[in-house]
C-alpha cells in the first residue's frame, strides 16, 4: 500500500506547493474581491448620480452610463476619473513655480499638499516617538512615576483626544506659531500614547525567571536594560510605531481642518467639500491612502531589517 505515495515525493510536493500557494494564498482572493468592488463601484455610478441635471435628459442605458462616468461634479465619481485627476494634479502639473522670491512648490500640484501634510506627520511622529520612548524608560524605572502616570495614559485611550486638535491650532496660533509646528504637535501627542504603552509593555515583558537570571549575575539596572529589557521591547515597539504613524497622519490631516489651512491633504478635503469638487476629494483621499500605505511599509521594512539584524525571526 505504501507504494502509492512512493513515486517521487519531492517533485510531487514541490508542484503541490506552487499550486497550493496560488490556491491557498491571499493574492487571488484579494484581487477577486478588489475586482468585485471596482465592478460594483462602476455599476453604482448611475444610480448614485441619477438625480443630477446632466442626466435628466439622457436616454438609453449605455448613453446614461457614459454620461454618469464622466460627470464634472458627480455624487460618486468613477474610479478612472479619480485616477485621471490624480495624474493631472501630480504628473500633469508643474511641481515648482517661479515667483519673485524664486522657485516655490506649486499649490496646484497635489504633491505639494502631500508634502505639507507628510512633513508635519513625520516631524510630529519623530517627536512623539522619542518622547514616548523616554517616558516609557522613566516609567519602568521609577516606581512612583509608573503608579502616578500609567493609569492616566491607559485611560487616555478611551478619550477622543483627537478632538483637542483644533484647540492646539488656535492656542499656538494665538502666540504666533502657525504652519507646520502646530500640526506636528498634534501628530506628536497622538503618536506618543501608543508608543509609551507599547514600550512599557515591551520593557516589562521579560518574565520573572529571566530577570532572576540577570540578578544571579548581579547585573546593574543599566545592564538589565541593555541586555534584556531593550531587546525584548523591540518587537512591541514596532507594532506601536505602525499604529503611531497612521494616527500621526490622521492628526496632521485633522489639524488642517479647523482653521481652514491653505495647504495640505486636509485643506484639499475641506475645499473640495466646500466647492462640491468630489473628484478632488476622492483624489486627495487616494493620496492620503497612498501616503499611509507608504509610511506603514517603511516602518515594516525597518522592522524586518532590525529584527533580522537582531537575529530574531519576525
Amino acid at each position: 500500500m505504501t507504494s502509492v505515495a512512493l513515486g517521487s515525493p519531492r517533485e510531487a510536493s514541490a508542484s503541490h506547493r506552487t499550486w497550493d500557494g496560488l490556491r491557498r494564498g491571499r493574492l487571488v482572493p484579494v484581487l477577486t474581491l478588489t475586482a468585485i468592488v471596482l465592478a460594483v463601484w462602476y455599476l453604482a455610478c448611475l444610480p448614485m448620480n441619477r438625480d443630477l441635471p446632466q442626466l435628466a435628459r439622457v436616454e438609453g442605458f449605455a448613453n446614461r452610463y457614459e454620461v454618469a462616468w464622466s460627470l464634472e461634479r458627480p455624487v460618486l465619481p468613477a474610479p478612472h476619473q479619480i485616477i485621471g485627476e490624480l495624474y493631472a494634479s501630480t504628473i500633469g502639473t508643474r511641481l515648482l513655480r517661479e515667483t519673485a522670491g524664486g522657485l516655490v512648490l506649486n499649490p496646484r500640484n497635489l504633491l505639494t499638499h502631500a508634502w505639507v501634510t507628510i512633513s508635519a506627520t513625520l516631524a510630529g511622529f519623530v517627536i512623539g516617538v522619542l518622547l514616548g520612548i523616554a517616558l516609557a524608560v522613566a516609567v519602568v524605572h521609577v516606581n512612583a512615576l509608573r503608579r502616578s502616570l500609567m493609569p492616566w495614559i491607559v485611560a487616555s485611550q478611551s478619550i477622543p483626544i483627537l478632538a483637542i486638535a483644533p484647540i492646539i491650532i488656535v492656542a499656538l496660533g494665538s502666540i504666533g506659531i502657525v504652519g507646520l509646528l502646530p500640526k506636528a504637535v498634534i501628530s506628536a501627542y497622538l503618536s506618543f500614547f501608543p508608543v509609551t504603552i507599547g514600550m512599557v509593555k515591551g520593557l516589562t515583558s521579560p518574565d520573572a525567571m529571566l530577570l532572576d537570571l540577570m540578578r544571579t549575575y548581579n547585573a546593574s539596572a543599566t545592564q538589565i536594560f541593555a541586555k534584556l529589557r531593550r531587546p525584548a521591547a523591540v518587537p512591541l515597539l514596532f507594532a506601536s510605531l505602525k499604529v503611531s504613524i497612521s494616527i500621526s497622519l490622521v492628526g496632521a490631516i485633522v489639524g488642517e481642518l479647523p482653521t481652514g489651512a491653505q495647504a495640505g491633504i486636509g485643506a484639499r478635503l475641506l475645499s473640495g467639500s466646500y466647492y462640491g469638487q468630489t473628484v478632488q476629494i476622492w483624489s486627495a483621499l487616494v493620496m492620503a491612502a497612498l501616503l499611509a500605505a507608504l509610511l506603514v511599509a517603511l516602518i515594516t521594512l525597518a522592522e524586518r531589517l532590525t529584527l533580522k539584524a537582531m537575529g530574531t525571526r519576525p
Binding site: 491571499r26 482572493p29 477577486t32 497612521s246 490622521v250 490631516i253 467639500s273 468630489t278 491612502a289
Partner: peptide, 28 residues
C-alpha cells in the same frame, strides 16, 4: 476564500486615514 481576501484588505484599511471620507459621507 472570503476570509483570505478580506483579512488583508481589512488590515490594510485599518492603517488608512478613513476619517477622510467624512466629506463624502456628509454629501451622501
Amino acid at each position: 476564500f472570503l476570509r483570505r481576501g478580506l483579512i488583508p484588505i481589512g488590515n490594510f484599511v485599518s492603517a488608512l486615514p478613513i476619517i477622510g471620507i467624512a466629506p463624502i459621507l456628509v454629501m451622501w
